[in-house]
Amino acid sequence: MPKDEKSKEFSRRKFLKSGLAVGAGTFIGGGLLSSCSKASNITEEKKTEMIKLLTTDGRIVEVEKTKTYPVTPSEPTVGDEARKGIPGRKFVMVIDLSRCANAGKCTSNCQSGHKLDPGQEYMSVHLMKDHKYNDPYWFPKNCYHCDNPSCVKVCPVGATFKRSDGCVLIDVDRCIGCKFCISACPYSARIFNWKERINELKAENAEDEDKKQFSPETSLPAQMGTVTKCDFCPDMSRQGKLPYCVTGCPMGAIYFGDENEDAISNGTETLRFKQTLKEKAGYRYLEELGTQPRVYYLPPVNKSFPYEVGLKDLTDEQKLKYKNILDKS
């Protein structure tokens, strides 16, 4: 087994590339790997074509090609099944603040993917300034899918829940719309369907959407009078795709991946999750609240663009949004 750095790097890339293409589905984390270890014992004798795979603990194993099979994308789960989570997964997100230039594509791509109305944002971009000497920076914010979620704690009916794969999701068939989860969330991540969604109504007529049963994994179809929020797109993960915000971002600022695999990707580049956080001083927003978010930030150092770039395309009215920060700088 080759162990030098170069081939290690190569094999990881190769794996992730094929892994993402084939489908980061249900079995990669658990089932496939257990079959991998069995397979690797046999390979020494028979000289069939081998492929290299990366295990969740960072080891490289060789597997007989014929013993592997592509994971078929699975359908988003519904009902109580949706409370279980994708086995072996532990989704994380890393947002590189040095790359964000407020293009707003994460927001709009997510909005069209989730059929949100204009103004409804699962992912929103804030302008932040921590103290008077630091430069303002753009701060994309979605649901942090906390490991100690305040929203799940206060829900009176168990409509919002934490899954084994890290996602905090909402079952709108259960939600009574009391909105206490919205007030409990310190990150203002949750939004409410104040009225019937216009966009969805249009889509409904086109595709007969209303016959579909609600899936917490897609957050669709939405219901008026219930709470909704970023769902970490587990339905996309099932198809081996990245979430809408990640694919939308032209700067590649948003990385999504799996803590168990220790890999994150922004679509063009794949990094090691823990190493990236270690080397680039990754942090979690408002760590002191003890909510343990699953979304990490890389600090806005050596920014690719000055923050003004993000203001260029905005109308004067839109600029008013960031008045509290712009007045200070």
């Binding site: 009176p156 939600c175 709470v227």
Partner: peptide, 13 residues
């Protein structure tokens, strides 16, 4: 609450 018809869920669930 947004869904008053589900008020009983507070007891059921």
């Amino acid at each position: 609450i947004g869904r008053p018809e589900r008020f009983l869920y507070m007891f059921l669930y």
